[in-house]
Structures are given as C-alpha cells and as structure tokens.
Amino acid sequence: MPIDQNGDAIIEGMSVRRLPKISLHDHLDGGVRPATIVELADAVGLELPENDPEDLADWFADKSDSGSLVEYLKTFDLTIGVMQTREGLTRVAREFVEDLAADGVIYGEVRWAPEQHLAGGLSLEEVVEAVQDGIEEGEDAAEGNGHDIRVGQLVSAMRHTDRSLEIAQLAVAFRGRGAVGFDIAGPEDGFPPSRLREAFDYLASEFFPATVHAGEAAGLDSIRSALIDGRALRLGHGVRIAEDLDVVSREGDEVLVHFGDLARWVRDREIPLELSPSSNLQTGAIAAWGTELADHPFDLLYQLGFAVTVNVDNRTMSRTSLTRELALLAETFEYDLADLETFQLNAAAGAFLAIEEREELIELIAEGFER
C-alpha cells in the first residue's frame, strides 16, 4: 500500500486522511511547525542549528532517531525556547489545532507542561490562558474551513521537578476552562509516579482524570506505579506492558500467551494504551522486540484484546501525522478499515469527556467510516 508524500494512503477506496480520528497523546511542544520555529526564534534571538524550515525539519528527524528517550527529549530545547511569550504560545497552539483538523482529527487532547514556559516572565495561569486562546482560535479557524474539532488541554507536571502538586492544582483550577486532564512528562526511568503521590492524591480527591507516561523508558514497575500511585485511567505509551506477556507458542495466526497479573489487569479493565509506533521506534521503547515497525508489539496487544490507540506523540520530531501512523500500521500488519475504526473507537471511549460526549464521538466515527 503506497503512502504518498503527504503521508496519506488509500484503504478500500478511502483516503485515510479523511477518516474521523481521535488524538489522545500529542505534545504541544512536539508539534511546532519548523517554519514557525524559524520565525519565532529570530524574534527572540534563539540560535538554531538550521535556519531553513526544511533543513530544520531534517535536523529534528535525525536527532530524534537516536534510540534513546533522553537524547530524544533534548530536541525540545528549541521548541520550548520559542514558546516563552504569550504571542508564541498562542500561535503555536492555534497552528497545532489547525494541523490536527487538516489531519482529520475531530477530538484531540494536547499535553504540555506550563512550568517549562515561564522564562519570559509569564505566570502559570497566564501561559495556560495563552494556550487556551490559541486552541480556541484554531477551533474557530477549522470551523471556518468546514471542519468541526474540539481540543482539550492535558496539563502536565515534569516528573523530575518538585512542582507536581502546584501543577495539579493549576489543572483543576482550569477545569471547565480548557483543562480536561493531568499528565506527568519528562524522564521516566528513575522518576516513578510514586514520587508525585501527593499530587495524584489531590487529583483523586477532586475527581480529576490523569493519564501517566509509563512503560516507555521504564518497564513494568513504572506501569504498576502509574496505576497504583497515579490512579491512571490511561497509560501514556504503555508499550512495555508486553513484557508481562509470555508467548508460549505460535501456529499461523494462533498465538498462545500466558498473562502476568499486571497485563491481565490492564487488558481486562480496558485501560487504554496510548501507543505511538514511530516514536516508540525512535526512543528505543520497543528495543526488546526489535528495531522495525513489524517488531512492535502493537499487533500482539491488539489481537489479545488490549484497548490500543494510535498516536503521534511528537509530530515534529517524528515527522509524522496520525494519518501516516495509521497508514504505516495498515501497511505493516495488513489492517483494514474495520481495524482502523476500532482504534478510533478505543480512543473515543478513553477520552476525558463526559459519557454523552464520548457517545457522540463514537457516532461521528461510525458515520465517517461508513461513508
């Protein structure tokens, strides 16, 4: 199945880009347009490794393909560097939503860490307001182009700093004003969710939902802590839950698997896995299984009944889109439209929305795929 230069593909006569999609794991500072970085960097005096947008896009892709999450995260110095003013934050958020809409997304959750955007003198409240302004401008622009989209903020705390409770309180304060959930980001290995237990206790007392990065750079203990200490309703990546599966035998399409207690809990409780295939390859999250997309345990998890969802993680670093990720999976594992629809339905069911709104998304997905 050919994937064109725009990352689109045709499956069963349908453009993948035109299919309705749900985006659950998408970082704001990982989705800045290279051309915007060039323009904003000049305005704030930030030195770039490349000053041509195409060359800069190549630089991001090369630096991100290191096999190390730590090295991968270093590329964010540039994107965060141009997101320190109200104008920069609003523009990046607006363009982010416009890019989601162009990718066929009808509902998205954008995660970002307000504490990383204070160097320009803005307060935590001001940066959240600036991003929300951009989101709403992007939604209005998309509507003007005939595309309905809704985007909510996942306010994130950096797991290696000591501001998690403050950020959790910030997220709750903006409930109803753009914030739909909480997350923790940054270096996973060595910084388990248990370090932020006070913040998660507070969120639980406020009935505010959390998704937790776990099972990417660290293994099963990280996932266990996300569920127990973080009360995570979703797992950010979570790909290494496959380490708790023992493949006993394979005969054709039949696979006999022994489940560990943790894997069975995640599967049986339908806890969504926010899988990001290209990113998982780049950061080495699937190194235990191989170095090609075909080695990704995505299909094993899907066939075993886990609530798998498809995400981009960082569009700029992986030079990808949700359309491209779906097309690559379809090409690699021979998925059809019914499979791609299942991934969107899983994501809709896991969205941090009221059940009535999730049911509406499910109807929109069914209608879009039927057409």
Rank of each mutant, 00 (worst) to 15 (best):
I10N: 05
E12V: 03
S15W: 08
L24G: 01
D26T: 14
D26Y: 11
H27C: 07
I37S: 01
V38F: 07
V38G: 10
A41V: 02
L46D: 03
D52E: 14
E54N: 13
D58R: 08
S64L: 03
G67L: 12
L73H: 01
K74E: 15
Q84T: 12
Q84L: 11
E87G: 11
R94Y: 04
F96P: 00
E98N: 14
L100R: 04
L100Y: 13
G104M: 05
V110L: 13
V110M: 15
W112S: 02
Q116I: 07
L118P: 00
L118I: 02
G120D: 02
L122P: 02
V127Y: 00
E129F: 06
V131N: 06
G138I: 03
G146F: 08
Q153L: 15
L154I: 15
S156N: 04
R159S: 03
T161G: 03
I167P: 00
I167V: 11
Q169L: 05
R177Q: 12
G178C: 10
A179P: 07
A179G: 10
D183Y: 08
G186D: 05
Y202T: 03
L203D: 01
S205W: 05
E206S: 11
P209N: 12
A210P: 01
A214M: 12
G219L: 10
S222I: 05
L227H: 01
D229E: 15
G230F: 00
A232Y: 03
L235I: 08
V248F: 07
E270P: 04
P272G: 09
P272L: 13
S276A: 15
S279Q: 14
T283A: 09
G284R: 04
A285E: 05
L293V: 05
A294L: 13
P297K: 08
L300F: 09
L304T: 04
N311A: 08
V312M: 08
N314A: 10
N314V: 04
R315Q: 12
R324D: 13
L329T: 08
E334M: 07
Q344R: 04
A347P: 04
A351E: 12
F352E: 04
L361A: 11
E363M: 07
